[in-house]
């Protein structure tokens, strides 16, 4: 599978793209490639430039510097639009139309749309067809957006934070739909700051920070690139005190536990044991994607 992706043709790309909003530099010579058949996870903290990058690939922003192309064409070209679907972070569509009316309207935009019943099933909207959009819950609204993104049976799908506001069940259901899409040969670009989501879905992850690509690879590669270890324990020490210890990149509480990411686990464990005699339930594990992400973005100014 890794091999297949490496040689898969590129469906969309940004080359040396720089984008400014007035004095603010949003993208700084960014390179990004979407390969056919993959799920590409685009990660980055808020303000990293993810949405700007996606907007350029959707054609809703004009390229200022560099090159953007989708299917070898300009991102806004009509031929591109019929083969592409998008789910954006928007605050809502018309509250007064029913779910079915929204779906029918979007289906009409495309030459070979998926059937309305199929879309409703894929997005888990069965039984909500006659409900007005405004009367839906947040999760249901998000699923309508997903259905609209799929209306044209797209080859390339952009999902910008798709599971925001979904409960765990709905989230896992959407994940399985995205996996099914991938199995049927579609390509997905997934923007998220939920690292579990990227870990669970993405074939390849790209981390953007301050408008630049700071890492790229499979989730496993990204994780392995972080030398640090995660030290976890129940302690009376405050996270602040922990953060000031040598080698600690990041410290936080999670439930009863305190977690610290460190490049020098041995030194830290020794220090912890010395400071807190009541320390319990100590584990030391390899860092996950989240930790890798933290480490990566912390290193970069």
């Amino acid at each position: 599978m890794q091999a297949r992706q490496a040689h898969a043709p590129s469906l969309a790309r940004l080359s040396r793209v720089t984008h400014r909003y007035g004095p603010v530099l949003a993208l700084d010579g960014l390179d990004l490639e979407v390969r056919s058949g993959e799920v590409l996870g685009v990660l980055g903290p808020n303000g990293a430039g993810k949405t700007t990058a996606i907007s350029l690939l959707l054609g809703s922003l004009q390229v200022q510097e560099g090159v953007a192309s989708v299917f070898g064409l300009a991102p806004g070209a009509p031929e591109v639009r019929v083969r592409r679907g998008a789910m954006l972070q928007i605050s809502g569509i018309s509250a007064n139309l029913t779910v079915r009316e929204h779906v029918e309207l979007f289906r009409a935009y495309y030459p070979a749309p998926l059937s309305a019943s199929r879309l409703m099933a894929m997005a888990g909207l069965e039984g909500l067809a006659r409900r007005r959009y405004g009367k839906l819950s947040g999760g249901q609204k998000q699923r309508v957006m997903f259905a609209l993104a799929l209306a044209g049976d797209p080859e390339l799908l952009f999902l910008d934070e798709p599971t925001t506001g979904l409960d765990v069940d709905a989230r896992h259901r959407l994940w399985s739909e995205i996996r099914a899409l991938r199995e049927s040969g579609r390509t997905t670009v997934l923007t998220t700051h939920n690292l579990d989501e990227a870990d669970a879905l993405a074939d390849r992850v790209m981390v953007i920070h301050n408008g630049r690509r700071i890492a790229e690879g499979t989730p496993a590669e990204i994780k392995s690139r972080t030398a640090g270890r995660l030290v976890r324990c129940v302690t009376r020490l405050a996270p602040d005190a922990m953060a000031s210890l040598p080698g600690v990149v990041e410290a936080r509480t999670r439930g009863q536990h305190l977690e610290a990411l460190t490049t020098q686990p041995e030194v830290l464990v020794r220090e912890l044991l010395a400071r807190d005699e009541g320390l319990a339930d100590l584990t030391v594990v390899a860092a996950g994607l989240e930790e890798a992400f933290l480490a990566l973005t912390k290193d970069t100014p």
Partner: peptide
């Protein structure tokens, strides 16, 4: 324009 509906529709072939 505020809610983003226009932005979404601009990505479609409409």
């Amino acid at each position: 324009r505020d809610t983003g509906v226009l932005l979404l529709k601009q990505t479609t072939p409409m």
